[in-house]
Design a protein around this nucleic acid. Structure first.
Lengths: 146, 146
DNA sequence: TCAGCTGAGTTTGTTTTTCCAACTCACTAT
DNA sequence: ATAGTGAGTTGGAAAAACAAACTCAGCTGA
């Protein structure tokens, strides 16, 4: 599966969350849907694929599957720390989709604790400045195949 | 293709860049690889799929296909503004992959103009504070199917 | 001048995935 | 007794991905 492309953490990340429906399942879970049927309905994924994806995400340590009832067995999927750390990616995708894909107003609007409507921005963690297209220089680049 | 899931810009964004190989092709283009064979080699995607993906990305306005030589016809793919705006997503994925997936040191390291090694952070565009897991409240949520 | 190379795909045939609907199983509510 | 909910699994058809070979045009070097 890790094909013979460039060695790269983007590729590694996508091998975990890059399959169809994975990020949408994560979105639902972040929005608070924790049960299988809810996630299936709200994403539109077919149930067999969703079961496979959730298993993959649990195996990768992104989600935890918890049994919260035994009588009829019932489960919930909750994000781990690694799962919560995907929020920036979801928010960046939403921001980009709002600006460049979605027609009309954003379907989903969130408010940040500071009081403003959220518009996610990606900044340098050190100087906190936005990352401009040409403000990056390579120090080391994962090696590409021969 | 826009299945009957929740109306959502994340889903819309993924309908453009969420197919297998699209983001890796974008990564290569951001790293400066602009020719078909280079992108194919460095991603590991098979040529037919890559041709399809690049067409999709051009049609979606993420890339522009430019002919830079006529004698033997030669082309290059360059990011549009929408394409450059995907950089935050790639950097967030890299950051997440470095932390939670890649074993060992990050294969790729970039330096920001401020002098520090880049670690992308996602912040509220208004108050510039990092977005904590529970610092968001819904104002409006794209409606889910009935 | 003729074989081989490069770039940019397309074609072909085979494997994988995906999709969808229906089915299971266990319990609950009417 | 019937219907409904939750959490999947199963089976068969349709779509997508894969790999290798092929095309076509011009260029390269012997």
């Amino acid at each position: 599966m890790a094909a013979r492309g460039r060695e790269c953490s983007i590729a590694n990340a996508l091998s975990v969350v890059g399959e169809r429906w994975s990020l949408l399942a994560l979105r639902e879970i972040m929005l608070g849907a924790r049960r299988f049927d809810q996630i299936a309905r709200n994403t539109g994924a077919s149930r067999d694929i969703l079961a496979t994806r959730l298993r993959t995400l649990v195996d990768a340590g992104v989600l935890e599957k918890r049994q919260y009832e035994w009588q009829p067995p019932r489960f919930e999927y909750v994000p781990t720390e690694a799962g919560r750390a995907l929020n920036p990616i979801l928010l960046s995708l939403m921001e980009w989709g709002d600006r460049y894909v979605t027609d009309g107003p954003p379907p989903t609007v969130l408010r940040h604790d500071c009081g403003a409507e959220l518009h996610a921005a990606t900044v340098c963690g050190h100087c906190h400045e936005p990352i401009e297209p040409n403000s990056l220089a390579p120090v080391r680049i994962g090696q590409a195949p021969a």
